[in-house]
Amino acid sequence: MNSKIKRSILLIFGWWMFFILGFFSKGNPGLGKFKEYQEWDSWTAKFSGGANIPFLMLQLPQIILNTQNLLAGNNTALSAVPWLGMLTGLLGNLSLLSYFAKKREKEAAVVQTLGVVSTHIVLAQLTMAEAMPIQYFVATSAVVTIGLIVNCLYYFGKLSKTVWQLWEDVITIGGLSVLPQIMWSTFVPLVPNSILPGTTAFGIAVAAIIMARTGKLSEKGVRFVGSLSGWTATLMFMWMPVSQMWTNFLNPDNIKGLSSITMLLSMMGNGLMIPRALFIRDLMWLTGSLWATLFYGYGNILCLYLVNCTSQSFFVAATIGLISWIGLALWRDAVAYGHNSPFRSLKELVFGP
């Protein structure tokens, strides 16, 4: 991407931040606390929904490039796209879709749905290029279809509690099985290539589900098992920057293959969900969004800057934008809840009101 396009994107990003800060810095002395709360509730929902734009811009170029290569008969080029990593991301999106559908967070659920659909399109392209085994794609397609239907029916109140609970059990077992395997595989060949972490976690997950459903666990234990699907999906996405940083550490030259614009879009997409997660006091959501914003988006921008793969102006703009956005989220949340300090919001998030 040439410097003119980068400058244009930076200019748009700068004006966007200027507009947001300017808009919310206007005082409304005549409005009561309840209206402040309602306004910020509405805006955080819009920000969360707005995350669709940068996330779509992240996936769309890959879809277009894959289409061009397929039409040109260049199937080999699609082999560079890791289908296993894409599949992991899709499963994470599907698990989080169920989490947000249950919480009735429409905008966040739409973001995850977009992630599921766009990733499935990429996997379909990889299958057409014979870069992904067709049997895995068929199985994935079945899971995606069932998952989207189940979540849609549940969101609109058309699904029985029993079926929904069964679906939650499935994604809990799937998430707990996949996460340890991904974490282990990151460090191969420093550790032996083995499926033991995944199979062990699968056995533990099945046992936990059976105990929860047969009344062998306390009420607190049942709630803990019920929260596992959301946390495992979040941890999958949280592991992505760890994996990327580890790759950067082992092969510093590979950093040059990263796109600073891609990392900026990732930072913006995850960052847009921070205010909503903080506002509804969702520790899991905020943890995942903040982690991805800081360590995947901004962390890789920092790495690119340190190896002189991006300009100082780009790095400074990203840094100022990130700090301003997080500061804005904390400040406006404190105003909405009538707190004197923004740190009160963080305390409530972790320890409750």
Rank of each mutant, 00 (worst) to 15 (best):
S177R: 03
N193H: 08
T199L: 15
A208D: 02
V163Q: 02
V188N: 10
V206W: 00
M236R: 11
G147R: 09
S194E: 02
Q181N: 03
Q181W: 13
P197D: 08
C152S: 15
A205L: 04
Y154P: 00
K161R: 14
G203T: 08
L235F: 15
V222E: 09
G203K: 04
I182L: 15
P192L: 05
Q181I: 00
L159Y: 13
A233D: 10
L196Y: 07
I209R: 04
L217M: 11
N151Q: 09
T172R: 09
R223S: 06
N193G: 00
T214F: 10
T200I: 15
M236C: 12
W231M: 13
L190V: 13
P180D: 04
G198D: 04
S177A: 15
W167I: 05
G203I: 08
F187Q: 09
G175K: 10
E168Y: 01
G226H: 05
L228Q: 10
W184S: 09
N193Y: 03
W164A: 01
G198M: 01
A205C: 03
K216A: 13
M236F: 14
A233K: 07
A233G: 12
A201D: 05
V150R: 06
G157W: 03
E219Y: 01
G221Q: 02
I173F: 02
W164K: 12
M183P: 03
L148I: 14
W184K: 06
F224Q: 02
L196I: 15
S160I: 05
F187H: 12
L159C: 06
T199I: 15
A205T: 01
